[in-house]
Amino acid sequence: MVDAFLFWFLAIVTVLAGLSVVLMTNPIYSALSLVMTMVGVAALFVTLEAYFLAGVQLIVYAGAVMVLFVMVLMLFDLKHELQAFTRGKITGGVKIASVGIIAGLVVGAITLGTKALELSKAGAETSKPVVDSTKALAENLFLKNVFGFEALGVVLLVIAVGTVALSRTKGGTHARD
């Protein structure tokens, strides 16, 4: 019962925060709503017993990535935003309709596929006990997936160098041409 209450509360908070990311016309409010969404997602990870991932979610997303977003927003000085949404009622309607169709397809597929998942769950129950999930996670990450881990390190290095090179051309963020 507590689980259910927690899930519904977090789901409502996350969905409302996500909606306000899309609907707010001031970008700084969008950024703050996105922080709320990240915190909600981290709490959902806790309800799914992925404690380490919840911590990483808070540190990486709600910490690092969002600080990056807010810093760039501060560089831009966007107090008012002209035309926050796309023009055209017809194309807007088409876009909303396509999003709705996608959402309906996904939800329909989930509800239809639940029976198949129920059938396959009987076999999965035997390998269920992941009690110390952080330890299992570390073992899997550093023994089985160590190549992917190292490749991610290389990707991050390339990205860091590329980002610095990209933003330092012609005087960096304070260039006035």
Partner: peptide, 17 residues
């Protein structure tokens, strides 16, 4: 959540958003 993000990508015009 995914559909809301997709709607945001399709509808908004601010690069940061």
């Amino acid at each position: 959540l995914f559909s809301m993000g997709m709607a945001g990508v399709l509808m908004r015009r601010n690069l940061i958003v």
